[in-house]
Amino acid sequence: MPLTIYDLMKEKGSYLPGSAACPGCGATLAFRIASRVLGPNTVYVVPASCFSVIQSPFPKSAVGAPLYNIAFPAAAATASGVWRAFKTLNKEVNVVVWAGDGGTVDIGLQALSGAAERGENIIYVCYDNEAYMNTGIQRSGATPPYALTKTTPTGKREPSKDMPLIVAAHRVPYVATASVGYPFDLAKKFEKAKRIKGFKYIHIFSPCPPGWDYPVEKTAEIGKLAVDTYFWPLYEIENGKLKITLKPRRKPLKEFIRLQGRFRKMSDEEIAELEKMVVERWKFLEHLEKSERIF
C-alpha cells in the first residue's frame, strides 16, 4: 500500500508539543511519525533515556498514550510482562519499547536478548543518538569510531556494535533499520512490524544537535546524508531474508562528517579510512541480500 503524506497527516499521533526535548531533536521526530502508524491502541515502555526526560516531567506528560517509565536494564522484560498481561485479558494491544541506544545496546541488552529469544510479541524500538546524551554525552556501544564524546575526548577508537544484526541472529521475525531523514521508509517499517506476530526490532538513526554538535536546523538533512553516504544503510530482515530498502547513489562520506562537530578532529585520511569501512559494510549487506536466508 503506498503511503502518502496525507495518510500520515490524517492519523493522530501521540506526541504533544511543548515537551522538554531540545530544539531539532531527532528522537521526537521519530516518535511523531512512528506513533501515527502505531495508533492509539498502543502502550509504550521507556527505560532511562532522553525520552524519559522528554515525556515525563511531573505532573504533565508529552505523550498522549499509556506509557510506563522503567529502570535502564528492564525495558524488554517489562514490555514482556505488559504484553502477557494483555494476552491474559484477551486484548490485542501494540506493546512498544521506546529506548535509547544506551538502554538498548549496553544496559538493556540482556533483557532484550531474553525477550527476543522467548519470542515475546512486542516491538522494540531503539532511537539511536549514538551516545548517552541525557547524562551529558558519554560514549555508548553505539557511538561510531572517531566521534568525540565527554569520555572519548580524542575520538572513539572502537567500532560500534552492529545491533540490528545481533538481534537478527536471534532469528526473530522482523528487524529493520530506519532514519528520521526518510520518514516514509520509517513509517512503512512500523506498519509492517505492527502486522507481524512475535518479536520485532526497529533501530532508528536519530540525529541529536547538542550531542553531535551541528547546526540545529540540519536534523533532517543529516538523517538523509547518513543514508546517502552509506553510513547508515536502510534495510529490513523479514523471516531471515535481508532486503536493502533504499539504494541511493552514494555521496562522499565527507559531506556527512564535516557537518558535525563531533567529528571535527578527523583528518582527511581518517575520513577515507572510515569511508572504506562504510563501503565494505554496504558490500557485505549486498552480499547478504543475495542469500535466501541469512539467519
Binding site: 508539543p17 511543548g18 522538554a20 516531567p57 504533565k60 506528560s61 508529552a62 505523550v63
Partner: peptide, 11 residues
Amino acid sequence: SKPSPGSAGDT
C-alpha cells in the same frame, strides 16, 4: 503524569 501540551511550559 497526565498527557498535556506544554509539558515543559511555553517552549
